[in-house]
């Protein structure tokens, strides 16, 4: 490597090499903010090892006994899985129970360390992770997540498959692959392929394209979607704009600064995010947003007049989205 690097002050090299050496302030200034991103102290769930070859007959006998026991238990106590879904594989214990308030639906709960794969009609798939808990509706077309993380894949047919969390409902497109995961702030919907439309509140909606994510508050309201690789400053500024949009008490000057930061940090693909921001700010703030959208996605500018976008004309917004989004 021929990278030109300046000489470091004394002590830096020693502390870089040996963490027990006297602390170099230049290094410590970077260690401190990065500390929160270090490996979390979580325990590892190690599944039992495969049985040794010499005990194959014992393992076979145990497996047969276990299978027989599971078969009996399944026949006697497990409610049917709605909508043509089946549990195709799992590791660790899973609990299924009917939901009294929703006849025909089924609550599926994973124990700590358990994982399960469910397959449904039209090549749909659900992967439920550690400690996940979700309700599969009687129709088999809606999955409500209560806790943990589920990964969902839709098939080739448009089967109106939807994911629900709190008051929000996301409709997934065909060929979509999405994760919905609860966290300390509510939940996050991440689209890997396909796209989703999230309906929440009083008729509000957001569109989440592939590779984008959208955070959902505990009340189900959706934040502005952004791509998973969006710059950090974009995420931080969107949080300020979303707070103001949600009606939380905020200083208008902060919102103005946040909007300027969003416009400055936006990359061409972040025009998608600006399309959402446009619909979350007062009319007097929309002009620069539309200008930046047109700059980042010039192909969409022809079919969507500037004034129509500023007035949030539904046809112009749809036309922009259809032209700008791949």
């Amino acid at each position: 490597m021929n990278d030109q690097a300046p000489n470091l002050p004394s002590g830096v090299e020693d502390y870089l090499w040996d963490t027990a050496a006297p602390v170099a302030p230049q290094v410590a200034a970077m260690e401190q903010p990065l500390a929160a991103l270090a490996a979390p102290s979580t325990a590892l769930f190690v599944p039992p090892a495969k049985p040794a070859r010499r005990a194959w007959w014992l393992a076979l006998a145990a497996s047969l006994l276990l299978a027989a026991a599971l078969f009996i238990l399944t026949r006697s106590s497990t409610p049917p899985i709605p909508g043509g879904w089946t549990i195709s594989s799992h590791t660790g214990p899973i609990t299924t129970s009917p939901v009294k308030s929703q006849p025909g639906s089924l609550l599926i709960a994973m124990d700590a360390g358990a994982k399960a794969e469910l397959t449904g009609p039209q090549a749909r798939r659900i992967s439920a992770g550690d400690s996940a808990r979700f309700v599969l509706a009687a129709s088999g077309d809606e999955i409500s997540l209560e806790h943990g993380s589920i990964f969902l894949q839709t098939g080739s047919q448009d089967g109106a498959l939807s994911l629900a969390f709190a008051g929000a409902r996301a409709t997934l497109s065909p060929h979509a692959a999405a994760q919905l995961a609860t966290n300390e702030r509510g939940a996050t919907l991440t689209l890997k392929t396909g796209n989703a439309i999230i309906m929440f509140g009083k008729g509000q909606r957001v569109r989440v394209p592939a590779e984008a994510r959208c955070e959902l508050a505990p009340d189900g309201s959706a934040a502005t979607p952004r791509y998973y690789d969006a710059p950090g400053i974009l995420a931080k500024s969107l949080a300020v704009i979303d707070s103001a949009y949600a009606g939380e008490k905020s200083d208008p000057r902060d919102t103005t600064v946040a909007l300027e930061s969003v416009l400055k940090a936006a990359r061409p693909r972040d025009a998608m995010t600006l399309w959402h921001v446009l619909q979350r700010v007062p009319r007097e703030s929309r002009g620069p947003i539309v200008d930046r959208m047109q700059e980042l996605a010039p192909a969409a500018a022809k079919s969507s007049p500037r004034d129509a976008l500023i007035n949030l004309d539904p046809a112009a917004l749809d036309a922009w989205w259809n032209d700008a989004m791949p």
């Binding site: 903010p33 990065l34 929160a36 993380s149 999405a178 966290n183 300390e184 991440t190 950090g232």
Partner: peptide, 22 residues
């Protein structure tokens, strides 16, 4: 499995950390 949920909401320190990471 898909990616994990995002870390807690960004603050100044978090933003600084992401800047170093970038």
């Amino acid at each position: 499995d898909p990616p994990a949920p995002a870390r807690p909401a960004p603050d100044e320190v978090h933003d600084q950390a992401l800047r170093i990471l970038d």
